[in-house]
Design a protein around this nucleic acid. Sequence first.
DNA 1: TTAATTGGGTACCATTTTAGTCCTGTATAA
DNA 2: TTATACAGGACTAAAATGGTACCCAATTAA
Lengths: 154, 154
Amino acid sequence: MLKLSRLTDYAAVVMAQIARHPQASHAAADLAEAVQLPHPTVSKTLKMLVRAGLLASQRGAQGGYRLARPASQITAADIISAIEGPVAMTECSQAQGECELAATCGVADNWQRVSLAIRTLLESVTLAHLAASSPLKLPVQLPIQSISLSAVSA
Amino acid sequence: MLKLSRLTDYAAVVMAQIARHPQASHAAADLAEAVQLPHPTVSKTLKMLVRAGLLASQRGAQGGYRLARPASQITAADIISAIEGPVAMTECSQAQGECELAATCGVADNWQRVSLAIRTLLESVTLAHLAASSPLKLPVQLPIQSISLSAVSA
DNA sequence: TTAATTGGGTACCATTTTAGTCCTGTATAA
DNA sequence: TTATACAGGACTAAAATGGTACCCAATTAA
């Protein structure tokens, strides 16, 4: 399925919720309530996001979480790697030279290029885009196909 | 990590191996030997690839597997979905209307667009590209960033 | 200064997914 | 007819994932 883990999904939803009210400080319990998810799980996600430097936390009464930087400077790739680690399609596209099958594999280089393309795409989508209620109007279909065509003809 | 499962990885390697010798019929054991992976596991992936219509199998002596269609007409997305099911980043980007959190989520639409962009990208990479020994010269970085910029400014 | 609030960290358990193995059946070619 | 090779399914082991509980630390307000 090449899908995000459920926690990553939660993280995105929670980040979007915070991004829609950037001034306020958000308690974990309030966020859990707002997005209708179990408190401890949301809490866990929030901690990971803090550790990744995407959220800032304030302890004590009236404390809570807020964005560490503007939503336009937080990317989908940031959120994904905060929860799942670096975006990479295969083992060898992250740690180079650790695959003993490299000799017989023969597709590693090309997978890495595909990985890079996906990473670049995810870095181009910001939290501001995700949180926007009106759908992103990325003209994805035509331009990306034109990329592939130019690659084929090259 | 947003990574492919190991079986998908194997599938790509095996498909590439077959694609490099399109005339021959490849026995499962030979393929396993060639790519240095356990026979039964390779066998399993081969069966999945047949079921997905990417490979044709021939039983009996001198039998084996060969591509069901030219390598240029088999995409990375085909291989991935043969093993993992449809490419989709979130639960709700495949089966619509089955997420009871849709009301509080607020990011579903945009994730679906990102999913679509990735799927389109993966459909633009063919087995012929993957199997090529010379790396794909996809001009990924510039064009994709230009897409994102146009989306931001739109 | 004390109590209430709120995040931080850790350890643990249940579930699901993934990977790998084995066995038996069936088709084909020599 | 026999050796070869794929087909299908059941089963098991291991790992990742998701969720819970518990207790500690920091901050604020009464």
